[in-house]
């Protein structure tokens, strides 16, 4: 149990996917203009990551031992098509959920955070349950970072900002400060 908690917290805070591994930066910088959108994107991310964890574990356990060089290609194709199927299923079964996650699902599939999750969790040799917990933590971490940045960006809109720094430059500097704040979590488990 302690191990699972460690995996979760480490993926959520200490090794935050966005702020310390730089994964999934495109949506992080692109879709973080509004709080609501950012939160929904985060939820969709968690969702896709859980599916990814299942796919990655299945592939890694049953298929890849026979053909290790197919790792990358099979991860991408299997994850993309599974998400597509799940998207169709949701559309049929729960239009409400579909509207909330909406257009984000297909976009997220080719996001580096998703492939990164599959690669990291198989590199670390996580089992099925550990993989799921890791995905939950990583997805939560991405959501947290997105919501934080979106919140700050909504505030900056009412400020008087010099024209030169507006846009991506400002967002990157905000992200840098957030990332510094997250570095503080590093001592969380080493008894510091």
């Amino acid at each position: 149990m302690g191990d699972l908690l460690f995996i979760f917290v480490s993926a959520l805070l200490i090794n935050n996917f966005t702020l310390s591994y730089f994964l999934g930066l495109c949506p992080f910088l692109g879709v973080s203009g509004r709080l609501v959108t950012a939160f929904r994107l985060g939820l969709a991310n968690i969702f896709v990551m859980l599916i990814t964890a299942v796919c990655a574990w299945t592939l890694n356990t049953y298929i890849l031992p026979f053909a290790p060089y197919l790792r990358l290609i099979s991860f991408i194709i299997v994850i993309a098509s599974t998400v597509q199927f799940v998207e169709m299923a949701i559309k049929k079964l729960s239009p409400e959920l579909f509207r909330a996650l909406g257009i984000f699902l297909p976009l997220i599939t080719t996001n580096c955070a998703i492939l990164g999750l599959a690669l990291f969790s198989t590199n670390k040799g996580y089992g099925f349950v550990e993989g799921l917990i890791y995905a939950l933590g990583a997805g939560g971490g991405v959501t947290l970072a997105l919501v934080l940045l979106a919140g700050i960006r909504e505030e900056t809109r009412i400020l008087d900002i010099p024209k030169v720094i507006e846009g991506t430059a400002l967002n990157l500097i905000i992200a840098g400060i957030l990332s510094m704040a997250f570095m503080g979590f590093a001592g969380l488990f080493s008894g510091g």
Partner: peptide
């Protein structure tokens, strides 16, 4: 050389090019 440095360096380089 830690993660925040990456964000800062790119942020300031972009700033420089904007300027």
């Amino acid at each position: 050389i830690l993660p925040p440095g990456g964000f800062f360096t790119l942020g300031f380089l972009l700033l420089f090019f904007n300027w």
